[in-house]
Design a protein around this nucleic acid. Structure first.
Lengths: 245, 245
DNA sequence: CGCGAGCTTGATGCCGATCAATGCATGTGG
DNA sequence: CCACATGCATTGATCGGCATCAAGCTCGCG
């Protein structure tokens, strides 16, 4: 591992997309071995991001997308005044930086919530390669589209759900994504603070905390700081599905 | 104009992208004349949608994107229970249907709020053509990326703004987009009901109505049902920029 | 061991939801 | 052309959920 002048760690060794355990979640979905080799060459650069550091900031020139290899990120936007909003939490296999394509500048901050590693995907090269490989093109478009759909889901949550419903939806989403990655669906460690959860869900940290406590009282969760055990997933699901109207 | 069996009006005549007054807002940005001809061929099919009718519904198979040529749309998602949320309002030059790429099914309803016409963009052909023309590829990616950025802005609004700030942001966004299209930035006719505005902004229709009245009392707006005149745009801007914290 | 960041819990207040009535414009059928 | 229905908007009164303010508490770490 070498260290550049500005402190970004670059790893010269290759991690082949073909042998990455995230290949079924990430860009390479559905690609042939030849194509995977080309993709591997494109994403040769890795970057380590220490907990608390930013991968990119709003305003930075947009050059690359990033695929989370290990670790956990949040993205947040902020308006001219101090207001800011967590727009998402990203885990292994998920892409960061799609917001930057439109204006050729990043429009949000991406912050590592634990020590993390990302594959750097130079955008120009991704464009070139996706003109060659229709599967890559298709997959990339799908990823962008799913991000839009995900955002619409968050809008629904922010626009029409009450605090308990929001937190239930958040936890179900997290556990589902962890399960997809082979982790337990019932036991998890939150990587983010109550305040960050609150920002994402449009709630204050006290409300998040109270709602965790309520869920615990009701036997839905076991909460020990950031250690969460889901005792009654069906109850969470019922909350999300129960129209408050 | 012909009429198909299922009542969709198809217009056989061509409207060339090259001579469309929306070409600087839509897909063709930056393309050469040759490329524009190919694009024109691709979007030969037009479709008319009567006020109140849906262009597509959640669950419909995804085949095409749509570019609004004339008229006005809303898109809305709904959860299994009755809850639903307006996720956007689309006017001339804007694309509809990006949500469908990810799952090959549409995930929201697109409803015409006035009699409208759209250019049908067969997605498969768009993929093919954008492998040929890097400008088209680039522009398409930018449009998707901007949709993501727009959604993040809405999340910020829903997550951290109060009612007045939301409505002010909404009005500023509308007037800005109208200005881009050569319309007055001060005088506008709302195409949507108070309830639809409320759904988009995460407010009840009564709150929207009260806030309009408040703005009128304060001399910021003149409100006559759906006829709006913006008397003091700076006041709206100040509201959006004033951190409530 | 003591500091501090983050979390919990309580008391109070406010913004926006809810419930309810009225007003206003458009359209329809007698 | 009027009577009435219908959909949308306005306005008022009340209520409730979440924010806010304010203490303590927990745990990791120097």
């Amino acid at each position: 591992m070498t260290q550049t002048a500005i402190g970004i760690k670059l790893e010269p060794f290759k991690v082949a997309c073909a042998s990455c355990n995230l290949r079924e979640l990430c860009l390479p979905v559905g690609m042939s071995n030849d194509q995977l080799d080309r993709l591997t060459t494109m994403v040769a650069t890795k970057r380590a991001v220490t907990r608390g550091d930013t991968l990119f900031r709003a305003g930075d020139a947009f050059q690359s997308l990033y695929a989370v290899r290990t670790g956990f990120f949040k993205t947040c936007v902020s308006s001219e005044d101090g207001r800011d909003q967590v727009t998402g939490f990203q885990m292994a296999g998920e892409l960061l930086g799609l917001d930057g394509i439109g204006s050729e500048k990043h429009t949000c901050d991406a912050v590592a919530l634990e020590d993390s590693q990302v594959c750097v995907i130079p955008y120009q090269q991704l464009e070139d390669l996706s003109r060659e490989f229709t599967d890559l093109q298709r997959q990339f478009h799908k990823i962008m589209s799913r991000e839009i759909v995900r955002d619409h889901g968050v809008m629904l949550l922010l626009g029409s759900m009450r605090a308990e419903e929001r937190l239930a939806a958040f936890l179900l989403n997290l556990t589902q994504r962890l399960r997809t990655r082979g982790f337990s669906a019932t036991s998890l460690v939150l990587r983010m603070t109550r305040e960050e959860i609150g920002s994402y869900l449009g709630l204050k940290l006290e409300t998040v905390s109270r709602t965790f406590s309520k869920f615990q009282d009701e036997g839905i969760l076991e909460v020990k700081q950031r250690q969460i055990r889901v005792l009654d997933p069906a109850a969470l699901q019922a909350l999300v599905n129960s129209s408050s109207a």
